[in-house]
Structure formats: C-alpha cells, structure tokens
Design a protein around this nucleic acid. Structure first.
Lengths: 229, 229
DNA sequence: TATTTCAATAATGTATGCAATTATACGCTG
DNA sequence: CAGCGTATAATTGCATACATTATTGAAATA
C-alpha cells in the first residue's frame, strides 16, 4: 500500500484520510471479509503513526465494516448469505419509505438531476466504461434519499447503501446487470416524475428484489468457482 | 464529576467506561444541548488520560450525540423542533416495519416477557417509582425489535431509540405520561398476542404520534418557563 | 514422547509530550 | 473611541513511549 502523505489533500485530517482509504479497500473488496488488520502494520504501510490508524479503525468498527477482538485485532466483517438477505430486506423496506416521502417533496431540479444521471449512465454503458457504473448507481439513490427531506432517514439509507456497495461493485461490472440497473432506475424515475406512488413502490421493490437475487447468485457462483478454479 | 476508576468494572476498557458515562450524561439531559466538552477537562475530572476521553468523544460524534469543530472542541448536539419531528416521523415508520415483522416471528416466550414488563411497569407506576419507567419503556420496545429477527433493522431501531431517549426520560417522569405509555404498550401487546397486524400498525402509529406530540408540548412549555422562571 | 509451564513476542490499551491551529484578549493606531 | 493587528493562551491533531494481555513456541520434566 502506498503512502497517504504524498497524495494528502490539505485540510483533511490524517484520521479521515486513513478512514477513507481503508473504507474504500473494504468496500471494493480489495480487503475481503475475514482479512485481519493490524494497527502498526497499516501505520507503517501508510507512513503515519498508529493514532490516526487506530481512530480510523474505530470508525469503521462503528460503521459495522469491521469487528474487533479485544486485545487481538480487527477483522473485516464477513457477510453470510443470511446477513445479505437480511440487509436487503431492510434496505427494501427503508428505500420504499424514502421513495414514498420523496414523491411529495422532490423538486423539478432534482428530477432533472436524476434524468441527467440516467443519460450519463447510458453513455457510460455504451462506451463500455462499466467501472464507473457503481458510482452513478450510488448517486442516483442519494438524490432520492435527499428528496425525502429527512435527515434521520437519509443517514439510515446511506449506511445501508454502504453496506451493500461492496456487492454492488462486484455485480454491476457485469454488462447485463448494468443494463438492468439502468432500466430499473428509469422506471423509478418515471414513477417519481408522474408522482405515481403505487407504481413507484413497485418499482423500488422490484429493483431491490432483483439486486438481492443477483448478489445471492453471484455468491453462489463464486463459491463454486473457488472449488474448481 | 466523580472519578471513573474507583467504580471501574474490570475487563471493560477505560474508553468504553468514559463513553458510557458521557453518553448517560447526554441522554439524561445532565449535559443539555449546546454544552461544550473539552478533552483535557473531562480527562482530569474522570482521572484518566486524554486518550480514552478522546476516543469516547469520537464515538459519541459518530453516534450523532456530539459534533466537533475541528480544532476547537466538542458540542452536545442540540435538537430543533424540526429535528425532533423528523426523528419521530422516521422512528414511526421504522417501528411500524419492526412490528409488522415481529408479528410473524415473535415467540410465546417473548410475548410473556412483554407481559411481565407490563406487570412490572404497573407495579412501578403504583408505587410511584416513576424514575424507573424509562428503562422499562426501552426494554419493551427492544423485545419487539429483536422479535423482528433482523440484525440490520435492530441496529436502526436502537439508534433511533437512543436519540429520542433524552426526551422520553424527561417526559415519562410525569405520571399522566407514564399512564398513557403503559396503556399504549398494552394495546401493542394485545395486537401482537392476537397477531392482528392491522390493529398493531395503528397501535404503534398512535404510540409514536403521541410521544411526538408530548415532546413538542414539553419543549414549548420549557421554552415559556425559561422566560418566566 | 507427550504435556505442562514459562518466557518471548506481538498486539492493543493508555499516558503524555510536542506541533499546529484557532480563538481571544490586549494594546496600538487612526 | 473604534477597529485592526499581534501575541498569547487554549485546544485538538499527531507521534511515541510505556503498560497490559493474549498467544505461541520452546524447553524441561514426567
């Protein structure tokens, strides 16, 4: 791992930089579940002292991305299929609420932001830069969270979204998944635009349901591949 | 503030002890919104070094109970009426989900736990130990969260519950509030017992609605009192 | 040879010192 | 007298040294 200090953006604390870096590594799957993290090792790799690393690890623990064994170390949280099902069940319920509230408050500007997001997603899909899809996926949903006009719900949605991001990144790289995601988003956008609550609810439900099934499938496939590489 | 070390339970880190202590002070309103917290001051008051205090403050910040001004200090989060309305709106929605799921999974043992909780609440109410009411209120709801059988939803409910606890403590001390809370809980229990989802949804909604209104009223009253003490 | 004990090692928990930055108070100047 | 600038104090950010604990491996003994 390369030093953080060299690429340090000024005015951001080392703790936050380390946190962001580690978070990225976990979410992208660079550090898969079960990976053990050691303060001093990370500190020397990143060329900072243990203090900011330690604080970053604590943050990640509270976010549920790591768990700590009292005087032993930190392990990257590993999700079972059951945990993933649970996560998506909750996410589905919460996103339905967010969408329901968003219908009422969303502005024409926000609708346009969503529309632009769809256009750019299509562009990215056509030009084959699928690596950027996850980012647009996240942004699309965030616009809706914000449109729900609830600070507390926004926080919840963001946390749940983060927890699924790891899997979404792995999945959305597959062209057919990217295609379906864009189509789902278009349907959600259309329902929001027409303020059709009933259709919106169904669209969100379908989107989440599909995401869940795809991830479970992916895990299944990976499990088989690991037996016969 | 008294030293922590003297009452230290073994095997729990100082950081966690400090965290718990400060958390309690904030949630009970002993440190009201706007209070400024300083690492070194707290450290000497509690007779520990700055490190565990610092880490505890960071935790509280992530939990949303404090916010920090970069190199200036920590301030106890102050909730506006708008924030409280928002919090309860979200809490209502989420607790409705929890209740809906709980109907399906709750066991006879858990129902009995709820029933016992009601009995003890009545006992406490009769004997006038109203100070203990908030604790039983929290426990009652936690049983339902758990019965929903969702790790992620449980986490969300607990966090939201914590954020409202400060106000619940102030309120539930009033006998008429305690009375209403117990009656609401009885209604919720009854609906769970009979697995009547529709009635349960209404009961939870009513309970949350009432809690919200009461807190807004309380804040209004306190605001007037502060003008003419 | 197997088991137990003890020491070395490695990790986090805690304390403390220094650096960097911001707020504040005081004095100076117009 | 007011406003601005500078110096100083206050406070967190970061680094590091020390304490405590858990694990591992080796050696000694049965």
């Amino acid at each position: 791992m390369k030093s953080i200090k060299n690429v340090s953006e000024k005015n951001i604390s080392l703790t936050d930089q380390v946190h962001k870096e580690l978070r990225h590594s976990i979410i992208t799957g660079e550090m898969p579940g079960g990976t053990r993290l050691v303060e001093s090792t990370l500190a020397s790799e990143m060329e900072v002292s243990r203090t900011p690393v330690r604080e970053a690890l604590h943050k990640l623990e509270l976010e549920g991305l790591l768990y700590s064994i009292p005087r032993a170390g930190y392990i990257v949280e590993e999700m079972s299929e059951h945990d993933i099902r649970d996560l998506f069940k909750t996410r589905k319920a919460v996103e339905q609420i967010a969408a329901k509230w968003a219908v009422e408050y969303i502005t024409p500007e926000e609708l346009q932001t969503l529309n632009k997001n769809l256009d750019m997603s299509e562009e990215i899909f056509r030009t084959g830069q699928i690596g950027k899809m996850a980012e647009f996926d996240t942004k699309f949903h965030k616009v809706i969270y914000k449109a729900a006009r609830s600070k507390s719900l926004y926080q919840i949605c963001k946390t749940l979204g983060d927890h699924t991001l790891k899997y979404r990144i792995a999945l959305i790289d597959l062209p057919e998944m990217a295609r379906r995601t864009i189509d789902d988003h278009k349907r959600i956008y259309q329902a929001l635009f027409e303020k059709d609550s009933e259709e919106l609810d169904k669209a969100v439900q379908h989107h989440m349901e599909q995401a869940k099934v795809n991830i479970i499938d992916l895990m299944e496939r990976l499990r088989h591949e690991s037996f016969m590489p």
